[in-house]
């Protein structure tokens, strides 16, 4: 038995008309929504709900995807070297990269254009052009 036939059989197990399925079921078209749209739709729904005091009374616990987001930290952040990860006290004036010592600074200074942004992107500090 060759592998190709194998795969077809395996695929068939999933895609064949399943006996346990409702014979009248037709999959709705376009059931794919990007995350962004999904979230904005949910936000809209919640906003509408909040505007309507009658409906709102039905849901005393307003727990939704957005309300449980963790808040920003109130504690001062620590500084770590962007290259080596060691605790760092210095920041390169040209790129904003944090570095551990003079030796690492040599690397930071002579970094090819673009690489510094990739390092910054690791901690979401890169410049994003829109």
């Amino acid at each position: 038995m060759s592998l190709v036939i194998d795969l077809v059989e395996i695929s068939d197990l999933t895609t064949r008309p399943q006996v346990f399925k409702n014979p009248n079921w037709r999959s709705p078209t376009r059931r794919h929504k990007p995350l962004k749209n999904l979230l904005s739709d949910e936000q809209k729904r919640i906003n509408l709900l909040n505007q309507d005091p009658d409906k709102k009374a039905n849901f005393p616990n307003n727990v939704n995807y957005f309300s449980i987001q963790a808040p920003p930290s109130l504690k001062p952040g620590k500084n770590y070297c962007d290259i080596t990860g060691l605790p760092s006290n210095y920041k390169a004036p040209s790129s904003g990269l944090k570095f551990y010592n003079l030796e690492v600074y040599e690397i930071v200074k002579n970094m090819t254009a673009g690489i510094d942004q990739q390092y910054l992107a690791l901690r979401n500090a890169n410049v994003v052009l829109r």
Partner: peptide
Amino acid sequence: NLVTNWDYVESILDYSLAHLGVSSSGF
């Protein structure tokens, strides 16, 4: 965090139930 493609979910459910050996017809 969220499911965005429900066609895939249907495939996964079909696959799961078929492999569980569900044999009733229509439901």
